[in-house]
Design a protein around this nucleic acid. Structure first.
Lengths: 215, 215
DNA sequence: CCGCCCTTGTGAAAGGTTTCACAAACCAAG
DNA sequence: CTTGGTTTGTGAAACCTTTCACAAGGGCGG
């Protein structure tokens, strides 16, 4: 078991966990790999293979204990604790994040927010005081934020990510449409809406070309 | 050439196009596969392989004409036109999208917005009048929106996606943290922030476990 | 305790993607 | 025209992920 785990496996583990929590709330005791597979569009074999990288969690003939697997996946994914987030950029996306209760509900607490805009600094958004960029390092050190979120214009995103990394965050979530390169082993995930839309554009054009040439 | 093109190839084509546009603005005439590869973290061989699925665009010994490749990629990705977007759910994420100028700048125009909230319906957000859900079908038919965006609470996301599909959109971008299954060949992309954060959580925990056991 | 049915865990096979490595082609200079 | 330096386009190899298929094990009814 356990070598290097692929991104797609980790994604699926999160999806399994979601379904398991639903099942737990619904009072289910056991679940089979095929039930678990359904909502994420995976196969039962894939579920079993994914889990097998981390150990042996099921009972042959019965399936998996819902409760036990929830705890195991929370442990594997690092979700049996809360993570503290420092947000840089309280513009439209940043504000949307601050106001999104779904994060805190899932163990991700935004504990600090920063902006360059002097007009915003000092004001309070969703119960959080907005700090100037100059305090980035000290505030992050003080509150112990582990995840940095970049919600700034593209032009400064790389610079902000580097500053977050120097301030000691262990991971970065980036909303700017630019590919940031991981340094010092600090993993970076980018959420790039334009890229997603362009992917859809490709698929629609492709579909058009196909039916176009068929007709 | 051209069979089924993988998602990751399409993603990279978008990234190449971005860099090419920068180069074009900077006045460059030619670019090599290795220059093109750098910002997306790909290799030069990958760039050439990606492009080779669609044809032969370069000159041996010289590289690719920046201008020519921009046009070719725009054509391939379906970006030599604008796409019309219908937004459902004008909450925090929906509003952030409406206010984000970056979309229109890249050829994605939000032309209609819908919400269930009677207090919002009829008001104007970022120059767009918010419509009631009952008008979804007629308005989308009338304005000819091709892409539907789901920015609603999780509970109604599947239902809204189905309604958008019935209303005739050709693709869906979903912001609710739920895996929606494609029906009728309408492609769906999901932007799931919690999933990204959980992926980072895994990587940080993993790093901790590694250094923990090494020490 | 036995036999039946069910589901896991896992090697092996299949399928896909990325990297390698090199012939073919182009440009420029002499 | 020929030579040398450069970069593409592309089969083949390497690598990674998913699916298959089945032995091993667990529970239950009799």
């Amino acid at each position: 078991m356990s070598g290097r785990i692929s991104d797609s496996t980790v994604r699926r583990l999160s999806l399994y966990l979601r379904m398991l929590r639903d099942l737990e709330r619904a009072g289910a005791e056991f679940v089979s790999s095929s039930q678990l597979a359904e909502p994420s569009g995976a196969t039962s074999a894939q579920v079993r293979k994914d889990l097998s990288h981390f150990g042996s969690f099921g009972k042959r003939g019965r399936g998996y204990s819902v409760d036990g697997l929830v705890r195991a996946l929370e442990e594997i994914l690092g979700l049996s604790r809360t993570w503290k987030i420092a947000l840089v950029g309280v513009g439209k996306i940043g504000s949307a994040l601050l106001g999104y209760g779904g994060l805190a509900a899932r163990g991700f607490d935004v504990v600090a927010a920063f902006d360059v805009d002097g007009a915003k600094v000092g004001t309070t958004a969703y119960g959080l005081r907005i700090r100037p960029m100059t305090e980035l390092r000290s505030v992050i050190a003080e509150c112990g934020a582990e995840i940095g979120v970049v919600a700034t214009p593209t032009e400064v995103a790389a610079e902000v990510a580097a500053a977050l990394e120097r301030a000691g965050v262990g991971a970065i979530l980036n909303f700017a449409p630019i590919e940031l390169s991981e340094v010092n082993g600090v993993p970076i995930r980018t959420v790039d809406i334009v890229l997603e839309l362009e992917g859809l554009s490709y698929l629609m054009s492709e579909a058009g070309r196909r039916t176009g040439s068929d007709a």
